[in-house]
């Protein structure tokens, strides 16, 4: 991907440290490293005072208590100004009663959005797409979602993937398709013949030696 100055900007990848930044937000100047020790959902939206983004902000605000229980902070971003962000957050509260209680980056010069690959010129040359970066307590990128301008994000899925990632970390397991907390998890496949022979005798629910599930 080419940056504004013609240099090649690398998109962040899963498993990499999230790029550090120093950004003006509605909560003052924040660095990504200020969040160390907490998980962060950093997300971009195309523009303040637009309908899909307003529904998303209300939805993010509604899941914020659940995210807090999981040690996750929210951090929004768009290329609008601080004044615009403040006015929009106040407008949302005034019109809907939903308080926006998380910082929003005013990325007017697109410095942060460039680092995170949030501007997709095929969608818009001037606005950020609906990106979601789930960053863990060690500041490693654990999940990336991109939604187009037309399509609002699904908060159930965002909570679900946080639960799935944190469950995998805590228990050394993987989670199957459509997994929900309380469902069985996948035991990592055996890496040796000996382990494969032993696997079927370990009391797991197995389809075959490579595909075993267990309750947590």
């Amino acid at each position: 991907m080419e940056g504004e100055m013609g240099q090649v900007v690398s998109m962040p990848k899963l498993g990499e440290k999230a790029p550090e930044f120093d950004a003006l937000t509605t909560f003052g100047t924040l660095k990504l490293s200020d969040f160390k020790g907490s998980w962060v959902i950093m997300f971009s939206h195309p523009a303040d005072f637009t309908p899909v983004c307003t529904t998303e902000f209300m939805a993010f605000a509604k899941i914020q208590p659940e995210l807090k229980k999981r040690g996750v902070e929210l951090l929004g971003l768009s290329v609008d100004s601080i004044t615009s962000h403040i006015a929009w957050a106040r407008n949302i509260e005034e019109k809907t009663g939903v308080k926006i209680n998380f910082p929003i980056i005013a990325d007017l010069n697109k410095e942060v959005s460039a680092k995170f690959g949030m501007v997709h010129p095929g969608q818009s040359k001037t606005e950020t797409v609906r990106a979601v970066f789930v960053i863990d307590a060690n500041q490693v990128i654990r999940l990336i979602l991109y939604y187009p301008l037309t399509t609002g994000r699904n908060m159930d899925e965002i909570l679900r993937v946080v639960d799935a990632l944190q469950t995998s970390d805590a228990n050394g397991v993987a989670t199957p398709a459509n997994w929900r907390p309380g469902d069985m998890v996948i035991v990592p496949p055996p890496k040796t013949q000996e382990m494969a022979d032993a696997r079927m005798k370990q009391g797991f629910e197995c389809v075959d030696w490579y595909f075993c599930k267990k309750k947590l």
Partner: peptide
């Protein structure tokens, strides 16, 4: 930072940025 966050009830990121300011 951790103790100030616990005592003030504020999240870590706010305490770090606030103390910097």
């Amino acid at each position: 930072v951790e103790d100030i966050a616990a005592a003030s009830g504020m999240p870590l990121f706010r305490v770090r940025s606030g103390l910097r300011e």
